Amino acid sequence: MKTMEWELAASSGTALLMWIAGIAVVGVLLAAFVWGRRVQSREARRPRPDEQPHLPEDGPVREVREYRDPDEVPHDGGWLTPHELKEGYGQSSTHPSDSQDPKDHRKGRGSSFGGGGLG
């Protein structure tokens, strides 16, 4: 039965269409490869090993851990305007805390809603 199906497929031109479809797929893949190489040739070259970033001479940068307190907001009922805020992009409105003791900065000691108490 399989032989008859193959003979019918070959005689009806289906085999020729399969060959044409296969060649078309290979052509599309080759065109995509050539197009990708062209795009890659227009990109900036990769940096050489001597152009890679290096560690600073004094070693890696270390993390600074400190407890910070928010800056006070004026309580006179007025509004702060943009020129009264801290200058510069990325500067926070905090300052280092007077106490760097972790016991002074534990959360859940407040008596507000969700303060962690039993009652």
Rank of each mutant, 00 (worst) to 15 (best):
S92Y: 05
S97E: 01
P82F: 03
I23A: 07
D101I: 04
D71M: 09
E43A: 12
F33G: 10
R106Y: 03
G77E: 09
F113R: 15
E66G: 01
M4F: 04
E5N: 13
F113C: 00
V64Q: 12
H75N: 10
E5R: 14
M4G: 06
I23M: 07
T94W: 05
L55A: 04
G78P: 02
R68C: 03
R62I: 02
S112H: 13
R42Q: 15
S11C: 06
P74N: 14
W35A: 03
R62V: 02
R62S: 08
R106Q: 14
S12I: 07
L17F: 15
R45Y: 08
H75D: 15
E84Y: 03
T3V: 07
I20M: 04
G36Y: 01
I20F: 08
M1T: 14
A44N: 12
S12K: 13
F113A: 08
E43Y: 08
S41E: 15
P56T: 00
L80C: 13
A44R: 15
D50C: 04
G90M: 03
R46W: 09
H54M: 04
Q100T: 06
R62M: 02
D71E: 11
V61H: 00
Y89L: 04
Y89K: 14
P74V: 04
E84I: 01
G110W: 07
D76G: 00
Y67V: 02
S92Q: 11
G117C: 01
E5S: 10
V25C: 14
P74W: 11
S112I: 06
R48D: 11
R45F: 02
G59R: 00
V64S: 09
W19S: 04
L16P: 00
W19A: 03
G108I: 12
P47I: 02
E43F: 01
E87Y: 08
P49K: 07
L55E: 07
G90V: 13
A9R: 15
L85H: 05
F33T: 12
E63H: 07
I20D: 01
G27W: 10
E84D: 04
T14A: 07
V73N: 04
V26C: 05
R38C: 15
D101W: 05
H105C: 10
H83N: 10
L118T: 14
Q40T: 03
P74K: 09
V25H: 04
R45Q: 12
A24W: 13
Y89Q: 14
G36C: 02
R46N: 08
H83F: 04
G119Y: 05
H75E: 09
D104C: 08
K107P: 02
G27M: 05
H105R: 15
P47C: 00
F113I: 07
R106S: 12
L85W: 10
L118Y: 13
V26D: 02
